[in-house]
Design a protein around this nucleic acid. Structure first.
Lengths: 114, 114
DNA sequence: TTACTATATAATAATTTACTTATATATTCA
DNA sequence: TGAATATATAAGTAAATTATTATATAGTAA
């Protein structure tokens, strides 16, 4: 019982640590209501494709997101059955929408819709 | 407007990063409903006094906690008027209570009550 | 005053993180 | 098939993080 609550809070700390990076936090907020592919994130964050891929890998390894291949694109979305999804959802809910980033993508003609 | 939401989410990421460490997260959960002093944290976490002091400094620098000196002890408590206190409160609410750590302290006769 | 306790800070070492470039793999399309 | 596009991974690096030990400061109590 005591061990359980310790483990629980330590696992929560790992989730919070993943969300405690501005790139990953904005990614998660975008994925809250959208599906995005890697090349969109590259365009949004203006960092190397490798860097984006590594952030997504961390989120994937922690089961926070899932990937789905559609042709040459791999779409990422929230994995809603995460053990701490309630926590994640509550956090995301309180952050300002970042959807303007997707509208900017659209205006540049770089939004990929499935 | 766009700049604001970017800054808001980046500041949220900094808060989450602070909470994304198991020592600080447990500290914050304890402080949610208690007041604690440095020596209690040292006993609870079994790390150097310096390490505890540095964690508390980070929380203090970010205005997540405040300190209050009573004689030779300095008591820490949550600073509830933080810009993102709602976010913090929502997160803490979803974590399992860590008060057993204080009960253990009491049993060892090491709980300092003001 | 002197000794003791509680806390903060400086300096440092080990580890982790977040990026980069280079390269590999998978898919599409001419 | 071969070129182009999308993605992942390996290797390397600079900066950040978290601990330590040593030392300074502040309060208490003999």
């Amino acid at each position: 019982m005591m061990i359980t609550t310790t483990m629980e809070i330590e696992k929560s700390a790992l989730v919070l640590k993943l969300l405690g990076d501005k790139t990953r936090l904005i990614m998660m907020k975008l994925l809250e209501k959208n599906t995005c592919c890697v090349c969109e994130f590259v365009e949004i964050f203006q960092v190397s494709q490798s860097s984006i891929s590594q952030h997504l890998r961390k989120l994937r390894d922690a089961d926070l997101v899932k990937e789905e291949r559609h042709g040459q694109w791999i779409y990422y979305s929230l994995l809603k059955d995460h053990e701490y999804f309630n926590l994640i959802e509550q956090i995301l809910k309180q952050l300002p929408s970042q959807d303007y980033l997707l509208r900017e993508l659209e205006q540049k003609g770089m939004r990929i819709s499935c």
